[in-house]
């Protein structure tokens, strides 16, 4: 899992049209897609919106030239959470439906309802498409670029500083973890080695985590002291220089936003009913 941290950087450093876009544009497009999809009411219309959004995602992924294997690997990581989140829904009624029809009756009075299954599938589709956009964002922008972009999008500097330090030390932690595990290997320790007593393995894994904790604490103290030496205080912030958006960035942003907004609006409101409503309103007032 920690090794994936280093793979993340490798994927984000590739060259493609999508990689070269400003991270602000990618953040806005990703957020817009998520907000638009989440805002679509729970009804079968979600399937149409999700299909269009997923096609947009596929197009952007193809343009990024990243192997589909990476997408599937990252999707696999999140699927258990997604399935757990949606799987339980089939057993419960929810506030989006008034009438429920039992599909299956289980012992202890548990029912699986048709409406709950539909709700769970809608939830899963929303989850998968939203997560796909997050994967696209995190696979085409480095953490540092995302941080700077967030700063330029006026996210509070206190949050940016904290996030910046977290990103930096996530990698420091990854490197230390790698060294510690290498050192354990050289002394023939393998937590899955059944020749060693179970308790001994658990105790030593505990010691290892404890030592990582102590080292993190010490590193934190050293870093904080060095920050104070360089004038760190309440008003400190990470320096992020101004960067204007290029015309290509603006064009991409415009096209994506138009598509996202139009698709969700068209699917959300039936265009014919919208026209009818406008026609009806004046006569109603009169």
């Amino acid at each position: 899992m920690i090794e994936d941290l280093f793979d993340l950087e490798q994927v984000t450093s590739q060259k493609s049209v999508i990689h070269s876009l400003d991270a602000r544009v990618k953040i806005i497009v990703c957020c817009a897609a998520i907000v638009a999809l989440v805002a679509v009411p729970y009804s079968p219309v979600v399937y149409i919106v999700s299909t269009v959004f997923f096609l947009l995602f596929l197009l952007l992924w193809a343009l990024s030239k990243i192997s589909p294997v990476i997408y599937f690997r990252r999707l696999l990581l999140a699927l258990p959470f997604g399935f757990m989140l949606c799987g339980f829904q089939i057993f419960f009624k929810n506030r989006y439906y008034t009438d429920y029809h039992s599909l299956l009756e289980l012992p202890l009075g548990i029912h699986i309802y048709y409406e709950s299954v539909e709700f769970a599938s809608i939830l899963l589709v929303k989850f998968l498409v939203c997560y796909s956009f997050i994967v696209l964002l995190s696979s085409t922008s480095s953490l540092q670029d995302l941080l700077e972009a967030a700063g330029r999008l006026k996210v509070p500097p206190e949050l940016i500083l904290a996030l910046g330090m977290m990103i930096r030390y996530l990698f420091v932690f990854g490197i230390i973890y790698r060294k510690v595990t290498d050192a354990l290997k050289t002394r023939l320790f393998d937590p899955f080695d059944h020749r060693l007593p179970y308790r001994y393995r658990i105790v030593n894994m505990g010691y290892m985590m404890g030592s990582l904790f102590i080292r993190s604490l010490e590193q934190g103290e050293r870093t904080y002291a060095s920050m104070l030496c360089r004038g760190y205080g309440r008003d400190s912030y990470i320096f992020i220089k101004e960067k204007p958006l290029l015309r290509s960035d603006l064009m991409f942003l415009g096209l994506c936003l138009i598509l996202i907004i139009m698709v969700s609006l068209l699917c959300w409101y039936d265009p014919f009913s919208l026209i009818c409503r406008f026609e009806v309103l004046p006569s109603y007032q009169g």
Partner: peptide, 19 residues
């Protein structure tokens, strides 16, 4: 510090031979 992780010197030195 990459190598030493046990609570005492003795336990850390014993780590390899036990393994």
């Amino acid at each position: 510090d990459d190598q030493i992780f046990s609570p005492t010197v003795e336990q850390d030195v014993a780590f390899g031979p036990i393994n």
